[in-house]
């Protein structure tokens, strides 16, 4: 029982983890992309469609990444090269993504999906308890954790990461030093879009292998909250994602147990938990101010 619960927690946490780590990079570069939900849902529908047409989960995942990147490219062009309001543009991306995915997805409603295979690691997967939990997940679970490790390393141990953080903390100085602020930010936005797309693809290929309209159900927004929760530190994103995965799964199990609590109250728990967590984190000024990218959400127009 416990083992099964843990397995579902991992699958519930993975889309949040992947989307949040992408958005973390975007925000570290000083851009706030509120369109995560829209990019995720596009990743979900395009990933599902591609996997169904080709019969390959890998193609599905790649298509999901491309869909997310395509959406984020629109956002990047507007926000960076036309200096539009980031909050409003992000909202537009979400509205467009939800609409477009509904339009594209009409053909896939009720179509049985393709489930990503679990990776069996010879020998290790047979270890009792640890085997199935640690060594027998679908590939994207490991991709997610790998992304966190890579992002953490690149951000804090490489020159590229230093430049990215400089652009996010003080775009004027970074520009004066000769770095192309807009180019760095555009690449970060693309990375975030790819991650959000992949996270959406995970929803329709692994979490619930089918297409349902609005199937991301606010997970993109929760991923945005996770970045704040993690105070812009990659490792803390893992903790946050697993915490929220656990909340989601616990509500499912509470419903199955039939405790007499209306299902709608349980379903609203992840959203309420997000608010509570945001309040706790933001009330602690020391924690947030240290790592908040100083130029977050501020437009930059190079002048010469």
């Amino acid at each position: 029982m416990f083992e099964a619960v843990l397995l579902t927690v991992i699958t519930a946490a993975t889309p949040l983890l992947i989307a949040a780590i992408g958005e973390l990079v975007v925000e570290r570069s000083g851009v706030l992309n509120l369109g995560v939900e829209g990019m995720m849902i596009m990743g979900a529908v395009v990933g599902f469609g591609a996997a169904n047409l080709t019969g390959s989960g890998t193609v599905g995942a790649l298509a999901a990444i491309l869909a997310g990147m395509g959406m984020s490219a629109i956002f990047g062009l507007l926000v960076l090269y036309l200096a539009t309001n980031q909050v409003a543009t992000g909202l537009a991306l979400t509205i467009l993504g939800l609409g477009l995915s509904g339009l594209i997805g009409e053909a896939f409603i009720g179509v049985p999906g393709l489930k990503l295979p679990r990776l069996e690691i010879a020998g290790l997967s047979d270890i009792p308890f640890f085997g199935p939990v640690v060594f027998n997940q679908d590939a994207l679970v490991y991709v997610g954790l790998g992304l966190v490790a890579i992002v953490s390393y690149v951000l804090f141990r490489t020159r590229a990461g230093l430049i990215l953080r400089a652009v996010g903390d003080n775009h004027g100085s970074a520009h004066a030093l000769g770095y192309s602020v807009l180019k760095v930010r555009f690449l970060a936005v693309l990375f975030g879009g790819g991650c959000a797309g992949l996270a959406g693809g995970y929803m329709s290929l692994a979490y619930t292998p089918q297409w349902v309209e609005n199937m991301t159900a606010g997970r993109g927004w929760i991923a945005l909250a996770l970045v704040v929760f993690a105070s812009w530190l990659p490792v803390r994103v893992v903790a946050g994602a697993y915490l929220f995965g656990a909340v989601t799964v616990l509500t499912f199990h509470a419903q199955a147990q039939g405790l007499g609590i209306p299902s709608q109250f349980l379903s609203s728990l992840p959203y309420l938990a997000t608010i509570v967590v945001l309040v706790i984190i933001s009330a602690n000024r020391r924690l947030t101010l240290v790592n908040t990218p100083a130029c977050l959400g501020k437009p930059f127009v190079p002048d010469r």
Binding site: L78, A92, L93, I95, L96, L98, G99, E106
Partner: peptide, 14 residues
């Protein structure tokens, strides 16, 4: 599909 309304609304904001 009438979903095209949502798409047009999103594009309009962009």
């Amino acid at each position: 599909s009438d979903k095209i309304s949502d798409v047009i609304q999103g594009m309009l904001l962009f």
